[in-house]
C-alpha cells in the first residue's frame, strides 16, 4: 500500500517536470503538443536579448548574493556554534533564524521599506542618489541565503569535537592559526553546499526581487513570471529546461561536496 502511494507520489512530482523537459524539444508552437523533434525554441532563446539580459543579471545577482551569504552566514554559524556566550546572543539567534520562517511577502515588503527610507536618508543627509536594482536584490537574497548557510555551518561545527581545537591551542597555535587550520577546513563543505543553496534560492526568487528592485532590475524568474501570467509559450518551456539543467547541475555539485559527510543526519 505505502509503496503504491510512494510510486504515485513520485509520479505526481516528476511527471510535470519530465513532460515539460520532453515537450521543450517539440517543434509545435503550442506548448505540450508534439510536432516532431526540434531545437528551434532553444535557438529562439539564444537570439532573445531580453532573456539573455535577465539571465546575466540573475546569474551575477545569484553569485554575488551567494558569496555574501557565505561570508556573513559562515560567521553567523561560527558565532552560534563557537562564539560561546556574548551579549545579545538570544537576539542574534532569533535574527539568524527569522529569514527561514518569515513569509517572503513580509520579508520583501519590510526590506523594501528599509531601502526606500535608506534612499531618502542618503539623499537628504549625504546628497547621494541611490538606485534600487541589482544591489538591493543582492542584499535581500544574501540575507535569505545566509540564514541557510548559518544552519549548515552551525550543524557542521556542532559535530566537530571541540577538543581538536583545544588540542591545537595547547600545542601553541594562536587562535587565528586554530581557526585557519582546524575550524575553517571543517566548515568548507557546508560553505560550498551553502553557496550553491543560496545561489539556487536566488535564481528561483520572484517575490523578494519584485519588491526590492527598481524598474531596472528584472531578473530571469521575474521575467518568466510576468510571461507566465500571459500563459505558457514554447520559448518559456525551453527556458524552463535550461534552468532545470543548471539547478540539477548545481545540486549535483552540492551533493558531491557533502558526500559521505552529513549523510546520516
Amino acid at each position: 500500500m505505502a509503496r503504491l502511494v510512494l510510486a504515485l507520489g513520485l509520479l505526481f512530482l516528476w511527471a510535470p517536470i519530465l513532460l515539460l523537459a520532453g515537450y521543450a524539444f517539440s517543434a509545435d508552437r503550442i506548448p505540450f503538443q508534439w510536432g516532431g523533434f526540434s531545437l528551434r525554441w532553444f535557438a529562439a532563446l539564444a537570439e532573445n536579448a531580453r532573456v539573455q539580459e535577465a539571465a546575466l543579471l540573475s546569474l551575477s545577482v545569484a553569485a554575488g548574493a551567494a558569496t555574501l551569504a557565505c561570508l556573513v552566514g559562515g560567521l553567523v554559524g561560527w558565532a552560534l556554534a563557537r562564539g560561546g556566550r556574548f551579549r545579545g546572543r538570544p537576539l542574534f539567534g532569533l535574527l539568524a533564524g527569522a529569514p527561514l520562517v518569515l513569509p517572503e511577502v513580509v520579508t520583501g515588503l519590510s526590506l523594501l521599506l528599509l531601502f526606500v527610507l535608506g534612499q531618502g536618508a542618503a539623499e537628504k543627509l549625504l546628497g547621494w542618489r541611490l538606485e534600487r536594482g541589482a544591489g538591493t536584490i543582492v542584499l535581500a537574497h544574501a540575507t535569505l541565503g545566509l540564514a541557510y548557510v548559518a544552519v549548515l555551518v552551525q550543524a557542521r561545527l556542532a559535530r566537530l569535537d571541540p577538543l581538536l581545537e583545544a588540542a591545537a591551542q595547547d600545542l601553541g597555535a594562536t587562535p587565528f592559526t586554530v581557526f585557519r587550520t582546524i575550524t575553517l577546513p571543517q566548515m568548507v563543505p557546508s560553505l560550498v553546499a551553502g553557496w550553491l543553496l543560496s545561489f539556487t534560492l536566488s535564481l528561483d526568487d520572484v517575490v523578494l526581487a519584485s519588491f526590492v528592485s527598481g524598474p531596472a532590475g528584472t531578473t530571469l524568474p521575474v521575467l518568466i513570471f510576468s510571461s507566465l501570467r500571459m500563459g505558457l509559450t514554447p520559448e518559456v518551456n525551453a527556458l524552463g529546461v535550461v534552468i532545470l539543467a543548471l539547478v540539477l547541475a548545481a545540486l549535483g555539485v552540492a551533493g558531491w561536496a557533502l558526500r559521505g559527510r552529513g549523510g546520516r543526519s
Binding site: 512530482l13 516528476w14 510535470p16 517536470i17 513532460l19 515539460l20 515537450y23 506548448p31 505540450f32 539556487t200 535564481l203 528561483d204 520572484v206 524568474p221 518568466i224 513570471f225 507566465l228 500563459g231 505558457l232 518559456v236 518551456n237 527556458l239 524552463g240 529546461v241 534552468i243 532545470l244 539547478v247 540539477l248 548545481a250 545540486l251
Partner: peptide, 17 residues
C-alpha cells in the same frame, strides 16, 4: 529533488498540463 527544479519551470509545466 523536485524542490530544486525551479519554481517557474514547475508552474509553467502545470499551466501546460
Amino acid at each position: 529533488a523536485p524542490v530544486w527544479t525551479g519554481l517557474m519551470p514547475r508552474l509553467g509545466a502545470w499551466i501546460g498540463l
